[in-house]
Amino acid sequence: MEIKTEDYRIWYEPDISTIFLQGFLRLDGMEAYKPVMDLAINALERSPLHLTLNLRELEFLNSSGISMLSMFVVKVRQKGDVEMTLEGSDKILWQTKSLKNLQRLMPSLTLILS
């Protein structure tokens, strides 16, 4: 499971139940994010207990992207039986603000900014 272009790369590593998002993610509208959402949901189904989202090298995510991420967090919360960790970077400005908001959607979400 991997989506790769010049600007970004998204993939899932089943051994560590981790989805990686890297680069500049600026897709045009929610519809364009469907493959990314599908990859994430697929990974969620394959991660029975715990899922990690590694965003440490995601330099940029546009508004459609953050709304896709928000909806994914809601889906994980609704599923109810999977714990999730968000790993981000405190050197990337948008992550310091927006990732905390995602925690409001799923209070049990673990957020690690480093």
Binding site: S67, S70, L93, W94
Partner: peptide
């Protein structure tokens, strides 16, 4: 409501970035 707020704040922070 949380998602809308997240998107709006995200837009602002992207502007700053």
């Amino acid at each position: 409501e949380v998602i809308v707020e997240t998107i709006v704040e995200h837009g602002d922070i992207l502007d700053t970035q």
